[in-house]
Amino acid sequence: MTALNTKYSHKDTGWRLFLKTILARAYPRIIGQQRETSWLIFDLLMPMGTVIAYVLVYKALNAPEEYVGFVVMGGAMTAFWMNILWSMSSQLYWEKETGNLALYIMAPNSMMAILLGMALGGMLATALRALVVTLLGSWIFDVTYAVTDFFQLFAVFMLAMIALYGMGMMMASAFLLFGREAWHMANLAQEPIFLASGFYFPIKSLPFWVAAGASIIPLTLGMDAMRQLVFPSGSKIGFLNVSTEIIILSVLAVLFIVTAKYLLAYVEKIAVREGRLTESRR
């Protein structure tokens, strides 16, 4: 009886358990990843390498100075896309490979809370890396910014992140059904997305319908709006006006998170039925 009265006997349920699960899953993303300092260095070096190469291409072409800023911003935002691919979409696949997925499902918590925790932790940890890439890039290449509306800039960034991580949660459910093709699928979704979403050039440069199609990826409109808001000539290169992009991003955010919830439940049911939760196809 004594043991039952200790602090360990307390049991959270309902929304408390939901919140605690989110925090518990976010913890290794925010704290754990920072402990491996060599990872931090590589996480910063890799996007910086691409940024430097593309900036030098623009310099060789005598491009206007804003384009250097576009590349720096695009390079910083690649960190978020890579995080979505490798630490959100593929995560449940990795968990399956290492045997943790079955434990997640057995535990009396919500899988949605686990996905939200992954998203929250990933977003915060990646934001730190993206900030460092932006500061480094801006310092090395002397990029100047002229923010026209701080409120809109904050709104665009937050909406783009919520929609993006909602998309990541949705993709995580789909990846649950993948075997060893998961690695290749995540690998495939890099360069084509960098191209279609205009990571290194204004999205307006692409044909209208290509840009409109690419807008399903929240970073496309997020970056376009942020470029319009932080660069002096931004308004000239905008694909849509910022207010319209904010509305579309809001819709995408709600759509992706709601879809993720239903897709997760559906895919989990299929995976249980087909016995894919514990399989390991290397």
Binding site: V57, Q190, E191, F194, L195, Y200
Partner: peptide, 15 residues
């Protein structure tokens, strides 16, 4: 994958 990588540079150049 490789065509997309090349296309990024092509669009940058074309712009």
């Amino acid at each position: 994958k490789p065509l997309s990588g090349a296309a990024i540079l092509v669009v940058m150049y074309a712009v």
